[in-house]
Amino acid sequence: MARDPQSARERAELNFGKTQTQSLARNRIVEESEAIARERDAKTARLKEMRLQKEAEEMRAGTAPRTSKSTAKN
């Protein structure tokens, strides 16, 4: 295997550093993906709330809300 214990230690430290760097990179990617999903979900909720408010106002005004294919399914 390795004749020099110092070089074996150096290789081990380099391998550990490489593994740690890869782990940190994966964690950052996962965090970014989760943040994007949270933003998308929040935007969807805001848009749905706005649509529901608009439909409620139209109902109060006595006009039938326009329905599209996507809202007719929901």
Rank of each mutant, 00 (worst) to 15 (best):
M1Q: 05
M1A: 09
R3G: 12
R3H: 04
D4A: 04
P5F: 07
Q6P: 00
S7A: 13
A8W: 04
A8Y: 03
A8K: 08
R9L: 13
E10S: 14
E10H: 11
R11D: 03
E13Q: 13
E13L: 15
N15P: 00
Q20K: 06
T21D: 14
T21E: 12
Q22W: 00
Q22R: 05
S23C: 07
S23Q: 03
L24W: 04
L24A: 10
R26W: 08
R26F: 15
N27I: 07
N27M: 05
R28P: 00
R28Y: 03
V30N: 15
E31D: 12
E32H: 04
E32S: 11
I36H: 02
A37R: 11
A37I: 12
R38L: 04
E39M: 05
R40Y: 01
D41I: 06
A42M: 08
T44D: 08
A45V: 11
A45D: 15
R46T: 05
L47M: 11
K48V: 09
E49M: 04
E49F: 03
E49H: 06
L52H: 10
Q53N: 08
Q53Y: 08
Q53D: 07
K54R: 08
E55T: 07
E55H: 10
E55G: 08
A56I: 06
A56N: 04
A56F: 02
A56M: 10
E58M: 12
M59T: 09
M59E: 13
R60D: 12
A61V: 09
P65V: 01
R66Y: 13
T67Y: 02
K69H: 11
K69L: 14
K69P: 07
K69C: 08
S70I: 12
S70D: 15
S70P: 12
S70T: 14
T71G: 05
A72F: 11
N74W: 13
N74M: 11
